[in-house]
Design a protein around this nucleic acid. Structure first.
Lengths: 225, 225
DNA sequence: GGAAACATTTGGGAATTCAGAAGAAAAGTC
DNA sequence: GACTTTTCTTCTGAATTCCCAAATGTTTCC
C-alpha cells in the first residue's frame, strides 16, 4: 500500500513517514502542492494525506485537482483550522476524512487504514479469485480451505496481483509498488524474484495452483493457465 | 516503442538508455540538437527526451522544430534550470512534460510511460484484425480462439504489422523498428527473415492464415490475400 | 540459367529466470 | 539489553528461453 504525504514541515512529514512506514506502508513525500500534483499524475497511491496550509497555494483547490487526476486515491485532510465550515467544505469537495492539528500519529494511522479498507473494497472486506481468498481486515489469506501465512511483502505482492488479474506486470512496476520509487531497477530484480518464489511456494504448499505466470523479458502475470 | 534521448553528457545519456532499454524501449541518442533534428526527420519516435542545456544551440527553438517535423512525437524536457518561467515556456511551446535535474531514472521512466499512455489514448485497448487479436494489457495474442505465445521480438513485430495493415513495410524499416538504427543494415536483414518466419509459424500453428505477404525487393505487407 | 532476394535450419552464446542457501536486518520475547 | 525467530536481501550456480549468425536450400526476377 502506497501513501503520499503532502506536508511542508519537514519534521512533521518525517514523523508521519516514520510511523506509517513501520506500519508497513510505502510512503512518499511532497513538500508543495505542485509536487503533489506531479506525483499523483505519475504514480498510484492508495491514500493521500494533505496538509491544507501549505505556502504555495490555495488549499481546497488542490483537493479538487487531486480528485480529478486520480479518482482512485483516498484523501485525508490535515489542517490547523478547526472550524466546522472548513471541515464540511473539505468533505464536500471530495476528501474522505478530516483531522485537525495537533493529532496523534496512531489516530492518523487508524484513519488511513480505515479509509483504505472502505475505498478499495467497499463494504465487503474480502478479495477472492479462484481458490485464493483474502480477508482484508483480518489480513488472512486462504488457499481453498487452508490458511497460509504470508509475510508483508508477500501479502502486498499477492494483493497487487489480485487487483491486476490477467494483466502483464513488469518487474519494475512490481518493484515500484513494493518499495516505492527510490529503488535502483537493477538491484530490485533479485528481490522480486525472491518474493515471487516465496509466494509461489506458499500457495503451492496449501494445494493451490500456480497462477503466477512468468513472461520472459517482461515480468509476471496472474492468470489462469 | 522508440525513444530518442537528446543529451550531450555521455554518462547521463548512457544511464538513461540503460534504464529505458531494460524497460523494453528501443533507445537512440543524439548528442547535439543538430543530430536530433536529423534523426527526427528520418525516423519515428514515440517519445523524445530533450536536455535544454546543450552546447550547440538555443534550447527552446529546437522544441518547436521537433514539433513541426514530427507532430506525433511526445516531448519531455529535462533541464538544470528550475525557474517557473522556463517550465511554463517549455509547456507552452509544445513539450508535454518538464523535469529538472537531478532526477530519478524511475521517475523519468514513469513520465515516459504516462506520456505514451496519454498519447496512445488509454493504451488499454485491444487490437484486432481478422482472426488475429491482441490484448495489450495482458500481452496476450489470440489466433481465433487459441492463444499463441510470442517472444518479445515477435510480439513487437506483430504489433508493427497490425498498426500498418495493408501497408508495404521495407525490411529496413522493420529492422529499424525492432532494433533502432545501431544495426548494420546488412546483418539485420537475416534477423528480420528469421523473426518473420517464427511469427508466421506460430500463427499457422494455431490455425491462422498467413497474412504476411513478401514483396520481392521491398519487404513485407500484412494484408488479406 | 544465373544472380539476387527470400526462407529455413541449426547451434553457440547471451540474457533472463529460478532454486537454494547464507548473510543482514527487523521483529518479537523474555 | 540479549536472545530467538522471522523476514528481507544478496549471492551462487543451474536451467531455461531467446536472439543472433552462419550455412544451406528455395524462390523470384531478368
Amino acid at each position: 500500500m502506497k501513501i503520499l504525504v503532502v506536508e511542508d514541515e519537514k519534521g512533521l512529514a518525517e514523523s508521519i513517514v516514520d510511523y506509517l512506514t513501520k506500519e508497513g506502508f510505502i510512503c512518499e513525500v511532497a513538500n508543495t502542492f505542485w509536487q503533489a500534483d506531479e506525483k499523483v499524475s505519475l504514480y498510484q497511491y492508495d491514500c493521500t494525506i494533505v496538509d491544507l496550509t501549505l505556502p504555495d497555494g490555495e488549499g481546497f483547490g488542490i483537493i479538487q485537482t487531486l480528485k480529478k487526476i486520480a479518482a482512485t486515491t483516498g484523501i485525508i485532510i490535515i489542517s490547523a483550522r478547526n472550524t466546522l465550515e472548513d471541515k464540511i467544505k473539505g468533505l464536500e469537495i471530495g476528501s474522505d476524512d478530516y483531522m485537525t492539528k495537533p493529532f496523534h500519529l496512531s489516530e492518523l494511522n487508524a484513519r488511513v487504514k480505515s479509509l483504505i479498507r472502505r475505498r478499495n473494497f467497499g463494504g465487503n472486506n474480502d478479495m477472492a479469485w479462484r481458490e485464493i481468498r483474502v480477508q482484508l481486515q483480518a489480513r488472512k489469506v486462504f488457499v481453498g480451505e487452508k490458511e497460509t501465512l504470508l509475510s508483508r511483502k508477500e501479502y502486498d505482492l499477492l494483493l497487487y496481483f489480485l487487483s491486476n488479474i490477467d494483466v502483464a506486470l513488469t518487474k519494475e512496476s512490481i518493484a515500484e509498488h513494493l518499495w516505492g520509487d527510490h529503488m535502483d531497477s537493477a538491484d530490485s530484480l533479485d528481490m522480486v524474484y525472491s518474493h515471487i518464489k516465496n509466494l509461489r511456494r506458499k500457495i503451492l504448499e496449501k494445494g493451490g495452483r500456480d497462477y503466477i505466470q512468468s513472461i520472459y523479458g517482461i515480468g509476471y502475470k496472474f492468470a489462469a493457465s
